[in-house]
Design a protein around this nucleic acid. Structure first.
Lengths: 358, 358
DNA sequence: CTGAAAGCGCTAACAT
DNA sequence: ATGTTAGCGCTTTCAG
C-alpha cells in the first residue's frame, strides 16, 4: 500500500513495453503466450492492480452506472433515529424483524436490487451514491462524473440539476414525467392502479365514501390522488378533503374525523407505508381495521404483506423498474439510442385483509 | 453528450485558468467571489460536470469503497431461474411476497445495507461489484482498482487473490479468519451462537439427540458445526453424522432417516435458509415441525421470521458487520491503522416456533 | 488571488 | 507481435 506498482513497473520487470502490459490485461489474445506469462508473473510478483481511474480517463468510459439513492435511505434511517441524533448502535432489523419491515426493504430497495442485477448481467459496475450532502445539489457530480449513466430517485435533485447532468450522461428518474423531457422517466401506472383500488372498493365492498391520505409532496402521490378523484367524479361520488400523512398531524386529523362522526368507509392511502401509519393511528384511537373502516395502500412492499391485517395494495414492478433503468442507460450511453423516453410500467392489485376481504 | 466540456473549456469561457476552475469546485474559499461566480456561470452554461476519473487519478484517492457481492446474489437469482435460462420477465417479489423472502433480503443484503449507510455517513461512494466473471478472479481488479478499500463476501475469491489485492488497498472479508492474516476479517460469533442453540434445546426442551445439517462448504457453516459438536461432546451426548443440505439429496436423506426410524429430536441447521429447506422437505414427507421434530436455524434473516413456523435462530448483527467493514476500510485507507484485524461480533438468540416453543 | 505546468496511470493509434 | 508516444481531465505545487 506504499507506492503501488504501475504498468511501468510491470513493464520494466517483465522486460516489455507498457502497451504490452496493457494488452495482456485487456486483450490477451494479442500477446504471445510466453510474453503474457512473463507479464502476469511480474504483475503477481509486484502486486500490481490496474488503476481503474486511469483506465476510465484514457478510455473515456467508466463501465459503471450510478444510482443516486440519497433521499429515501436517509429518511428511512431517521425513522428510528430522529435527525441529528446518532444512530442507535445497531439499527437494522436487530430486534424481532417485524417492526423493521417498514424500513427495509422498501420500494427503493427493491428497485435498487433490480438495477444491480441488470448492471451485473450487462457487465457494468454499480456506483451507489447517497453521500450526506454538503454542497447542495452539486453532490450529484460525485456520481455523474464517475459513471456512464445515472438513475435517480425523486425529490432530492431538481429538474434543473438533472437536465444539467443529462447533457453529459444519460439520466433516468424514477418518477412520472411527460414526454419530451430533458431526461428519461420510469414510473408505475399510478392511474390504473388507483382505478383498480377504487373499482375493488366500490364493486366488491359497495363503498362510496372515501378519504385519500397523501404522502409528502411527491409526484407519484399526486398522480394517485388525481387518478382516484377522477374515478370518483366519473362515478358521481363526492370528493372529500385529503388528509396529509405527516406523523405530527395524522393522528390528530383522524381523531377529529372520528369525533365528528365523519369517518369514511375507507382511507385510500398513497403508499403502503402511509397505510401502515394510518392503521397505527386508528388502532391507537381504538378503531379496528377493517372492521370499522377499510384502508388501502400502494406499492406492494414487504411491510404491507407481513402486517396484520395485510394491506390491500397495488404492486409496482419494482425489480423491473430498476432493470429497465439500467437497460435504458446502457442503450443511451453506447449511443444506441438518443431520445429521452418516459416509460409507464403496468401494475397489479394484491388483495389482502385491510380492505375487508377475507 | 457529444464532447463533454472540461476544465479547459470552463476556464476559457470564464477567462481564468484551469487551476482557478478546479479551486472553485474543490476549495471555493480560495477564490474571489466574483471569480467564483464567473466560473460557476460558465460551468452551468457549458453543462460542465467534473470527471471523477481524472480527479481520482490526479489525487491518488477515489473517495469510494467497494463491495464485492458476486456469489450470493447470483445464486439467489438462480434459485428462481436455473443457471443458463433467462430470468423470468419479473423475478423480484412479484407474487405474494411470502415465497420470495427466501431470496431477498438475505444475509448479504442486510450486511450490504449496513455498509452502504456507513459509506454515506463517512462521505464515501459505494461501488458494488458482481459482474459476471469472464476472467477468473481477475474480476476483482475491476473493483480493486477503483476504490480505496474493498469488502468481499466469502467463497468467490481465493485467499491468494485477496492477499494480492490487499497489497494495494485494505480488504475485509466477511468470513472467519485467524489473526495475523493478509487482510481483515469480520464474522459473527458462531461458537457462542451454537452454544445458545444447544443450550436452549437441551435445557428448555430436554433434548439430547441431534443431527446437524450443514450448508455447502462454507467456513461459517463449518465453524458452527464444530462448535455444536463440541457442546455435545462436552455434555457427553452422541455425535451423529451430519446431513448436507444440497437440494438434490436432502429430501432423500431425510426420507431414509425417517424410514429407518432414526429421526433425531432436532435438526440443527447451519443457516435459516437451510432450516427452511429442511422444513419443506419434512413437510413433503408428512412430518410436522415442531410437533414431530424440532428445527433450528442461524442468521436471523427475514424469511425465518415470516415463515410458519417461525425459525428459532441466532441473529447475526448483519447491519453492524457492514458498518464495521466500512469503518475498518476507511481507517486503513487513510493510514490511520495498518494492521489487519479479525473481528468477531456478538450474536443473540431469537426463539420462535420451530424448536417447539410457543 | 490567480496562472503555468508537471504529472497521475493507462490506452490506443501509429510505428516498427 | 511489440514498442513509442500523445493524450485523457484534473489537481497541485510553485511562481507571480
Amino acid at each position: 500500500m506504499t507506492k503501488s506498482p504501475t504498468v511501468y513497473d510491470v513493464a520494466a520487470a517483465a522486460g516489455v513495453s507498457t502497451a504490452t502490459v496493457s494488452f495482456t490485461f485487456r486483450n490477451p489474445g494479442r500477446v504471445k503466450e510466453s510474453t503474457r506469462e512473463a507479464v502476469l508473473a511480474a504483475a503477481k510478483l509486484l502486486g500490481y492492480v490496474p488503476n481503474a481511474s486511469a483506465r476510465s480517463l484514457a478510455r473515456g468510459r467508466t463501465g459503471s452506472l450510478g444510482l443516486f439513492a440519497y433521499d429515501f435511505m436517509w429518511n428511512a434511517t431517521d425513522r428510528r433515529a430522529p435527525a441529528g441524533q446518532p444512530l442507535p448502535a445497531s439499527h437494522l432489523l436487530q430486534g424481532e424483524p417485524y417492526d423493521d419491515f417498514r424500513l427495509f426493504p422498501v420500494y427503493l430497495d427493491e428497485v435498487q436490487r433490480g438495477f444491480e442485477m441488470q448492471c451485473w448481467r450487462r457487465g457494468f459496475e454499480l456506483i451507489l451514491g447517497g453521500r450526506k450532502d454538503e454542497f447542495g445539489e452539486n453532490i450529484i457530480n460525485e456520481i455523474a462524473g464517475r459513471v456512464d449513466g445515472v438513475a435517480v430517485f425523486p425529490r432530492r435533485l431538481s429538474a434543473d440539476t438533472l437536465a444539467h447532468v443529462s447533457r453529459r450522461i444519460p439520466v433516468v428518474e424514477f418518477a412520472p414525467g411527460g414526454d419530451g423531457g430533458a431526461y428519461c422517466h420510469i414510473t408505475a401506472d399510478n392511474a390504473s392502479g388507483m382505478g383498480m383500488i377504487a373499482g375493488h372498493l366500490m364493486t366488491e365492498h359497495g363503498m362510496g365514501d372515501f378519504v385519500f391520505v397523501s404522502s409528502a409532496s411527491n409526484a407519484d402521490s399526486e398522480e394517485r390522488r388525481t387518478a382516484f378523484n377522477k374515478v370518483l367524479e366519473g362515478s358521481g361520488l363526492p370528493l372529500r378533503d385529503d388528509l396529509d400523512h405527516a406523523p405530527a398531524t395524522i393522528a390528530r386529523d383522524l381523531a377529529e374525523l372520528r369525533d365528528a362522526g365523519l369517518f369514511p368507509q375507507a382511507f385510500v392511502c398513497a403508499s403502503d407505508l402511509v397505510a401502515l401509519e394510518v392503521i397505527d393511528a386508528l388502532t391507537a384511537l381504538g378503531v379496528s381495521v377493517p372492521e370499522d373502516v377499510a384502508v388501502t395502500g400502494f406499492d406492494g412492499v414487504v411491510a404491507g404483506a407481513v402486517s396484520t391485517p395485510g394491506i390491500t395494495t397495488i404492486r409496482q414492478p419494482m425489480g423491473d423498474m430498476g432493470r429497465l433503468a439500467a437497460d435504458m442507460l446502457i442503450a443511451r450511453s453506447s449511443g444506441e439510442t438518443t431520445e429521452n423516453e418516459s416509460v409507464v410500467l403496468p401494475v397489479r392489485m394484491i388483495v389482502r385483509g385491510s380492505c375487508g376481504c377475507a
